[in-house]
């Protein structure tokens, strides 16, 4: 990390103009791809979770409706929360691998080649 967060002085980090990077089409595309996935998904799973919580909190009779033997709608919806959590996780991982990682690493390599000495952590990892 060129500008170690402890030191307000940007130091060698100033050699890289991040506002310029921020304005490149490539970076804007990365940000758009990231946000257009994570924001709607976050809204979706929070709404679905709170819909479930509200049903469990205020619609006891509905949740107690039997479906299969002793398994009722409540148990089923609860298990569906697990399924949707696992599903969203896998979906995000595949999306990030396909749509985010290639573009992020291309920007990263470009920056690192442009200013190799800036992005090697002076205090962090070296022995």
């Amino acid at each position: 990390m060129g500008s170690h967060p402890v030191e307000p002085d940007p130091g060698p980090g100033a050699a890289v103009d991040f506002t310029e990077v921020q304005q490149t089409e490539q970076f804007k595309e990365l940000r758009k791809r990231h946000r257009s996935f994570v924001f709607p998904m976050a809204v979706f799973f929070l709404l679905w979770y709170f819909a479930y919580v509200l049903l469990a909190d205020y619609a006891h009779d509905f949740m107690a409706t039997p479906v299969l033997g002793n398994i009722n709608i409540g148990i089923l919806l609860g298990l569906l929360q697990f399924v949707s959590t696992f599903g969203i996780t896998m979906w995000y991982v595949s999306y990030a691998n396909r749509r985010l990682d290639p573009i992020a690493s291309s920007i990263r390599h470009e920056l690192e080649e442009a200013a190799p000495d800036v992005f090697i952590d002076p205090a962090g990892g070296k022995k």
């Binding site: 103009d17 991040f18 506002t19 990077v21 690493s105 920007i107 690192e112 070296k126």
Partner: peptide, 24 residues
């Protein structure tokens, strides 16, 4: 400082500078 905001955003999404932390 808009520079710091830009730096944080670029770093957070690309991982630049954070990934070579323990090359040695």
């Amino acid at each position: 400082d808009p520079m710091k905001q830009a730096e944080m955003e670029v770093r957070s999404l690309t991982g630049v500078g954070a990934e070579k932390a323990t090359d040695h």
